[in-house]
Design a binder for these strands. Sequence first.
DNA 1: CGAAATCATGAAATCGTTTTCATATTCAGA
DNA 2: TCTGAATATGAAAACGATTTCATGATTTCG
Lengths: 328, 328
Amino acid sequence: MATIQDVAKLAGLSRTTVSRVINEHPYVTEEKKRLVSNAMQELNYVPNSSARRLRRQQTETIAVYVPRITNPFFSHLVEVMEKEAAKKGYQLILCQTRYKKEQERNFLELLKTKQVDGLILTSIENDWSEIEPYLAYGPIVVCNEYSDSAQVPLVFLDQIEGGYIGTKHLIEQGYTKLGYCTGDHKSSRVAHDRRVGFLKALNEAGLQMKDEWYFGGAYSVQDGKRTFENLKKLSDRPQALFTGSDEVAAGIVKAASDAGWKVPEHLAVIGFDNQPLAELMELTTVEQPIETIARQAMELMIESIKSKRTPVRKEVILPLNLIQRSST
Amino acid sequence: MATIQDVAKLAGLSRTTVSRVINEHPYVTEEKKRLVSNAMQELNYVPNSSARRLRRQQTETIAVYVPRITNPFFSHLVEVMEKEAAKKGYQLILCQTRYKKEQERNFLELLKTKQVDGLILTSIENDWSEIEPYLAYGPIVVCNEYSDSAQVPLVFLDQIEGGYIGTKHLIEQGYTKLGYCTGDHKSSRVAHDRRVGFLKALNEAGLQMKDEWYFGGAYSVQDGKRTFENLKKLSDRPQALFTGSDEVAAGIVKAASDAGWKVPEHLAVIGFDNQPLAELMELTTVEQPIETIARQAMELMIESIKSKRTPVRKEVILPLNLIQRSST
DNA sequence: CGAAATCATGAAATCGTTTTCATATTCAGA
DNA sequence: TCTGAATATGAAAACGATTTCATGATTTCG
């Protein structure tokens, strides 16, 4: 593999001149430019990435943390982020935290060792106070999740509103016995806010939430099915279920259907995200503008990297949208 | 940010000794080790990734090329690959080619500029003759796709068998008028082999394939719906459709159902992959052992990186499995 | 007892690129 | 005509880590 030294030798010039040509610096004659270009071509030379990174103190790489890439919500986020990153000449390192604090901490080392220029968190496992010190090593942008104390750009959705409009819809459809289904998110502000919105809508309607109508640990289609089995066992069952994901909602609808129940007659179900699955399964769902938040997060990330300024808190909050279908 | 020089100064030792301690080389007294560790801790020192990469000629990063991460087949592959890579201390760079030759070539530069140690191709857009020269820069492993001429490890599935067993199943269910639905893959061996298997099964049964029963350009749920609309317009319609993806199959089933057709009475549909969607939509499907091929591909990649040997052709071919549900 | 091997530590070189500083020449304006 | 700015090119330093080579001390074995 040729180095800049080889190119200089073949061109009969110094490495400095070759570097000037490569980087399009001024004050190089056209003749010298020609000599360098010919030598580069003949030697099939490309600059070494590691050397460049060391000298320029830049990696042109961004790490994106998602819990699991198989979750369509996160794969959609990453799809748009990678596209935006590639447009600007950045690579995207995929980091799956699997909802684990330790895994998240391990990946934070990427910033500390300067393996990436910045990182985007789409879910947050550790307390912000554990993450904040890493800002000394590079910029962090939070997307989808939220933190009151984070002095960084945050692009997120009004999840209180999301929880609220979804629940209000159920109430407007005539349901008075509403169950709540979610993952086990201890540090997730998304989950917290949705529940706040859910309870707010219930309170406004003078409705009560029973403890046994709360179903946790639901992330996937399989979890949705398990949730239905648990609901089925209740003597006093909810008429409708608010869920945090189309996949979970789909699992519930499928299991209910398999058990001979009619949706929404026997059980109304509302999902989140408006994935292709939602349309296929005729799910009422709260749509999130995934493409918008992904693009904005990546733009803010690249802007933070380039500006090299002290990060400041900046909130970009977007509304949610209810899509009504047959499941409610 | 502290450097090894700072640590050496604080410890009262040379950079060589500090490096020896960091890398656990022999012949350093316990006393000196203690001094270095204390200094590292006090300065909050971690080694700089760019400097290490340059000196060691290693990046500990692998690029994985997928057409689109939102396709559940590819997101599942990447999910497993990232997990395996992280276990061995490697980072995974996600590259979306979007089925474009130029995009694939752009990403191949990652290998040439030594930004990654190796790359895994899960789909191939360019001719292998265009890709092969990049082997000079680092190892390449092909996963899911196939190429006769590639002198690299390939982990793939018997797609001729997949096309065959799916089609044979339709025939065994009594269908004699079979349509074929696929994406527009010009250089995809997967698509080619499935069709070979499909035609083989037809031929064995003495059945004919009509040109107007061939539906192209289908990758997504939406494409599935469009495919159904096209099929509906035919005067002589197929009784069953072989598709290349559960999402396409689901779109077809959904559109058919919305049009009042009964599946499989009016139209039988078979999908591929056995995604959660397949169970939800009761699709008969050809299941692919995604986790196995993903894990094996990543293991072969890391083995290739570590061995630094000339790549040799190695085929790992796995069988497919038919899952029968209500759509056929 | 002496030579060879092992132990312990550090200076210099290395990896490959880019920038800084230096030197020489040419040009433009006062 | 002279001076300062612009132009053109190259050597050395820098980025930060790791390895190679060197030196001296200690231990081991024939």
